[in-house]
């Protein structure tokens, strides 16, 4: 089974629009995993039916029972996250600050502190309009552990692919270089980097590629809006060459991205111009790179 992970470092480069287009082109052979759990948008293009849903629990949250608390303050003393303020003489856990390390409960002399499992979001298995299935999720507000939810989405996608005898998974990854991205990258066969020729696009591409390189995963790159700044595009192309990254395609600045999205469509459904051909070619190149 092969896993293609699409990431971008920087947001707004067209990552999700392209991933959804690839999923559409791959049709029923490709299982889709939306691992941008923080701001999952793929469902707006692939119209999942939310057939199956489940709560996701990860980590813990401390809770102080006021009946048993003797106000000794030991819990607040050991807490490194300033998560136990004293409010009107009572020790109270600040749920947004608590990291769930459980240290407070271990030092409480009256066992007044218990740790509750934390519901950090929901995940779904859906049928989508490509004739295939998609695993996606919604992270709760301000939740920690998005990396773990990403891992969950990916492992479910793998299970489905095995059951359904599909040999390809396409993953829409998260922005940044932190724990959700690291989680998105684990087990990838090929990484598609979507970037744009802006000073920030290049900067973020270099940072996220450093991470990809650390994991030793083969990568290709699509430069979106390539005509917006020819100098930076040339600079990106040079970088790709130096780092041995497959240069998949340059796409033009095209408002079809937004128009397709506004129609709830992928670009390959909406547009019938040169852009569509370029995306089809890109998908074929990606498939070639993984075989």
């Amino acid at each position: 089974m092969k896993e293609i992970v699409v990431i971008s470092g920087k947001g707004g480069t067209g990552k999700t629009s392209l991933t959804a287009s690839f999923a559409y082109l791959g049709g029923e052979d490709v299982i889709v995993a939306d691992c941008d759990v923080d701001a999952a948008d793929m469902h707006l293009l692939l119209q999942p039916d939310f057939a199956d849903e489940d709560d996701f629990y990860s980590g813990e949250l401390a809770h102080i029972s006021q009946n048993e608390c003797i106000q000794c303050g030991k819990c607040a003393e050991v807490c490194r996250f300033d998560a136990i303020p004293v409010i009107k003489g009572r020790y109270i856990v600040d749920p947004l600050a608590c990291e769930g390390c459980g240290y407070c409960a271990r030092v409480c002399p009256t066992d007044a502190i218990t740790n509750k499992d934390l519901n950090v979001g929901k995940w779904y298995i859906s049928n989508i309009k490509t004739g295939s299935m998609m695993v996606h999720a919604k992270l709760g507000i301000g939740a920690d552990n998005s990396g773990k939810l990403v891992a969950k989405v990916k492992s479910e996608a793998k299970d489905i692919a095995e059951e359904e005898r599909k040999n390809l998974i396409i993953v829409d990854g998260s922005p940044g270089v932190g724990c959700p991205v690291v989680s998105s990258l684990s087990g990838a066969s090929f990484v598609v980097l979507v970037t744009e020729p802006s000073v920030s696009g290049l900067h973020d591409l270099k940072r996220v590629y450093e991470l990809v390189h650390k994991f030793n995963i083969k990568a290709g790159c699509i430069i979106n809006k390539a005509d917006i700044n020819k100098e930076v595009t040339a600079e990106i192309e040079k970088f790709l060459k130096e780092e041995n990254i497959v240069h998949i395609a340059n796409l033009p600045y095209d408002e079809s991205f937004t128009k397709a999205m506004t129609n709830g469509q992928t670009i390959v459904e909406y547009s019938d111009n040169h852009l569509k051909d370029l995306i089809i070619e890109s998908w074929n190149d990606i498939l070639k790179s993984i075989t």
Binding site: G11, T16, D38, A39, D41, L44, L96, L139, I141, G142, A143, D144, S146, S174, P175, G176, G178, T258, M261, T262, G264
Partner: peptide, 26 residues
């Protein structure tokens, strides 16, 4: 970006938050 813990930490003690968006479905 996003709505998870790094964002909460970033805006926690601020007086006002400007949310910037674009007029698209995403």
């Amino acid at each position: 970006p996003g709505t998870s813990c790094p964002v909460m930490e970033a805006v926690k003690d601020t007086d006002f938050v400007i949310l910037i968006t674009e007029p698209t479905p995403f």
